[in-house]
Simulated assay, not measured.
Amino acid sequence: MNKRLKLPNGFGSITKKSGRRRKPFEIRKWIDGKQKVIGYEVTYESALAFLCEYNKNPLLFSPSEITFDELFCLVKAYLYPRIKERTQSSYNCAYKHLNRLYDKQFAKIRIGDLQSAIRDIHDSGAGYSTQKKARQVLHHMYTYAVKYEIIPPEKDISRYIDIDKDKKVYKKTIFNTRQIYKLFRATDEHRYAKMILMHMMLGTRPSEFLAIEKTDVKLRQRYLIIRESKTEAGRNRIIPLHKQTLPFWIEFLAENNKYIATDNNGIHLN
């Protein structure tokens, strides 16, 4: 982000303290005529989220003057504490492609402006996935703006954004029996063959498999619990363990790592 949001009078202040601190961002607020410290946070965004939650009133910002860049700062403060770091990172990357909108007053942005930003992404060589992620960022911003009355509901134009169609680079096919047996034969020499089989027999998303903690694997009862998932329905679901992969689970549980999917140095593969 090129600049930080100018906080309105009476909203409070955020200051980064010098030195090596675990929570360097100090949050202050005028209370009873005195400026008092009300908290410390690790990042500016989390400090702003704390301050927004304390004030409970984003309308302290002038709806008619707030820029696209300033609104994104507010959305980050509101949204990022609720999503995973990987999703935050992908949103930040997508937001960089929307730089032509940064200084525009949000309430005056038109669909042509949004389409021009998407066209910039196309012209840069980025494809469907990047455009889709940018559209998601815009959707979050317009949802926030409507919720806090920065724009009226009928001004939510994010639903009208067109992006390129998804082009399948290659056709996905399931492993056949010959390939599966080949993986089993490779498990004596290749650690990752075991991981592939463990993952394949579970049928989980890659992100779900990477997030499996050893405490969630119940060997005696032959099942595990998926705690982290992309969807609400996918969280805390129980999946049985395939009997042919049980030796692999026993081996991985014996290692001194928190997560099942780690490399030989105990680094979480994510």
Results as ranks from 00 to 15, higher is better:
149 E>G: 02
174 I>E: 10
155 K>Q: 15
213 E>K: 15
193 A>S: 15
195 M>H: 07
209 F>N: 00
154 E>H: 13
163 I>P: 05
203 G>T: 04
164 D>L: 09
200 M>W: 14
160 Y>M: 01
164 D>K: 11
151 I>W: 10
204 T>E: 03
184 F>L: 00
186 A>D: 02
142 Y>L: 05
150 I>S: 09
208 E>V: 06
184 F>P: 01
192 Y>L: 11
150 I>M: 15
167 K>V: 05
212 I>V: 15
215 T>R: 15
224 L>Y: 00
150 I>T: 08
171 K>W: 07
198 M>Q: 02
167 K>C: 00
138 L>N: 04
169 V>N: 11
159 R>E: 09
157 I>H: 12
206 P>A: 06
160 Y>Q: 11
211 A>I: 01
170 Y>T: 13
192 Y>T: 06
186 A>S: 11
154 E>D: 14
161 I>N: 11
191 R>H: 14
197 L>K: 05
187 T>P: 03
142 Y>C: 06
147 K>T: 14
154 E>T: 08
226 I>W: 06
203 G>A: 07
148 Y>V: 11
159 R>W: 03
154 E>S: 13
227 R>K: 12
196 I>K: 00
173 T>Y: 11
167 K>Y: 02
185 R>S: 00
137 V>K: 01
222 R>I: 12
168 K>Y: 03
145 A>K: 04
129 S>Y: 02
184 F>A: 00
156 D>M: 09
213 E>V: 07
147 K>A: 09
162 D>S: 14
205 R>P: 00
163 I>V: 12
153 P>F: 06
229 S>P: 01
183 L>S: 00
172 K>S: 14
207 S>C: 09
179 Q>K: 10
180 I>T: 10
139 H>V: 06
157 I>G: 08
135 R>A: 15
213 E>G: 04
184 F>G: 01
223 Y>Q: 08
196 I>A: 10
155 K>A: 15
137 V>L: 02
226 I>K: 02
158 S>W: 12
213 E>L: 08
227 R>F: 00
175 F>W: 14
143 T>P: 13
192 Y>M: 11
221 Q>H: 13
157 I>K: 14
153 P>T: 05
183 L>P: 00
204 T>V: 12
